[in-house]
Amino acid sequence: MQYLDTGWFGIFVTVTIVVFVLFNIARAGKSKGEIFIRRIPGLNALDDAIGRATEMGRPVLMVPGIGSLDAVSVQAVTIFANVTKQAAQFGTPIRLCCADAAVYTLAQEVIRDVYQSQGMIERMDQNSVQFVSDRQFAFAAGVQGIILREQVAATFLLGAFYAESLIFAESANSIGAIQIAGSTQNTQTPFFIAACDYVLIGDEFYAASAYITRQPVLVGSLVGQDWGKMLIISFVVLGTILNSYEFKQPKTTQRVDTTAEVRGGNENVSSIEPYDGDPRTKTPDDTFVYRMFNPIVSPEMLTIEREKEQVEESVEPTEEEVTE
């Protein structure tokens, strides 16, 4: 749908949040004082986990989930880069297992860069970053095997996890590994809370790199996200007040959603018609908030005259021509 006419609100909110983030990044670059970030226990425990692995001489396991290469995997690998930086300094072995070939390639490059930047490229084990399988449970079985065989001392399960999350978390729990986990999949967070020592909940996962490195760009971006949250909270509060008021008002009109044939195709259209039923208060689809997210699109708005492309008609040879 053309959102110059309808559905502009979502675009407006997105662009506003983008402006918030960019503005705060610019602001953080100029400010001299450090911006406060609340304590995140899971990230404070990062040093302890690596220290424990170093003392025990066992590896640190990192898994960026089973998602493809997207913002979630990239964020996970960015956190793992910070974990690896510390592990490299102590000479602690690492294992980074990937389920997606693109994430594997990215992780391999990043981890190599980390060892190189620390001047310890000789400490890097070529097999420390490995592709296990792109099938969910084959990957789960492979990683579970690594956890149990190598008796890892610490696990970092950060990224997009699904049903395999509990297999990893419980296996590592059974061998007494310190576990720091976080998933962008809300359905898996309860499993991690039940089985892991520290869990990054919701957007704490995205705040991790800002929390660890305190880089102005990352911290500014975090502040921009908070402004975005405040915007959303204000919408929730305003929407609640508006809906609570409207639900007390008498219903005078009703919305009719249907499909109409427009220029040879079916389109979803809607209209507002007078309500002539029993007296009652407004229903959810009568409210201003609902209409803002589900605008009225009339058939007239969709009626646009357009020319058709000129298609060169292929002339079929006649039977006589074929015979000749």
Binding site: T14, I17, V18, V21, L22, I25, A71, V72, V74, Q75, V77, T78, I79, A81, N82, V110, T184, N186, G202, D203, F205, Y206, A207, S209, T213, Q215, V217, L218, S221, L222, G224, Q225, G228, K229, I232
Partner: peptide
């Protein structure tokens, strides 16, 4: 999570992220 993904995507797209 959505806001975090948006900010992360924006930083990557504009090349604002340093490190990692």
């Amino acid at each position: 999570v959505g806001l975090g993904a948006l900010a992360m995507g924006l930083r990557l797209w504009l090349g604002l992220e340093r490190g990692g």
